[in-house]
Amino acid sequence: MNTETITVSNETASPAKTVHFLGSLLTFRARAAETGGQFTIVESCSAPGAGAPPHHQADAEAFLVTEGSFEFMLGETWRRCGPGEFVYVSPGMVHAFRNPASTPSKMLIINLPGGPHEHFFEAVGEPVETETTIFPPMGQPDVAHITAEAARFGVTMLPPPAHH
């Protein structure tokens, strides 16, 4: 059993970075470079109605709602979650989420292993002031660019789900 522990102090950790993507402010809290590639943790603050379209990927993904509420599509099923609720998405499972609330909602997104999702978010996200809580104006997303970048990082984007 490997009992090696890696400790990162605030002095050596990468500074937080925030990007805006599809109505969500994504702040990187634990980067793959800091976790030996084991995982990435991103704090997501999503505007009302914002979220991620249906997709699947080779990495595992987990969500911990911390404020507000989110609706998660897991395969064919929708599930509404509030603060403290956790959702695990196994590799290859089709999923999506959105903020159904009238105010911003927050959650932690954990990707295992670290890297692919982190690099995808960096490739498609618009850099904004770190830790900002102000959503920039959102234009029409460049679906072709998002889909191509997603594929580059092992994420397959799918058509929007039917309304539930």
Rank of each mutant, 00 (worst) to 15 (best):
residue 22 L to N: 12
residue 24 S to Y: 04
residue 25 L to G: 02
residue 25 L to P: 02
residue 27 T to A: 04
residue 30 A to P: 05
residue 35 T to E: 09
residue 36 G to D: 09
residue 38 Q to S: 15
residue 38 Q to P: 02
residue 45 C to V: 15
residue 46 S to H: 00
residue 49 G to N: 02
residue 52 A to K: 04
residue 55 H to G: 01
residue 57 Q to G: 14
residue 57 Q to A: 15
residue 57 Q to V: 11
residue 59 D to H: 14
residue 59 D to F: 14
residue 61 E to S: 11
residue 64 L to D: 04
residue 65 V to F: 01
residue 68 G to N: 10
residue 73 M to H: 00
residue 73 M to G: 15
residue 80 R to M: 13
residue 81 C to V: 14
residue 87 V to P: 00
residue 92 G to K: 02
residue 92 G to D: 06
residue 92 G to E: 10
residue 93 M to P: 02
residue 95 H to S: 10
residue 97 F to P: 05
residue 98 R to E: 09
residue 98 R to T: 08
residue 104 P to V: 09
residue 106 K to D: 11
residue 107 M to D: 05
residue 110 I to G: 04
residue 110 I to T: 14
residue 111 N to M: 14
residue 111 N to I: 10
residue 114 G to T: 05
residue 115 G to C: 12
residue 115 G to W: 04
residue 118 E to C: 06
residue 119 H to L: 14
residue 119 H to M: 13
residue 120 F to D: 13
residue 122 E to R: 12
residue 132 T to Y: 09
residue 136 P to I: 07
residue 138 M to S: 03
residue 141 P to N: 09
residue 149 E to H: 08
residue 152 R to P: 03
residue 152 R to A: 15
residue 153 F to Q: 10
residue 156 T to K: 09
residue 157 M to N: 14
residue 160 P to E: 06
residue 163 H to L: 10
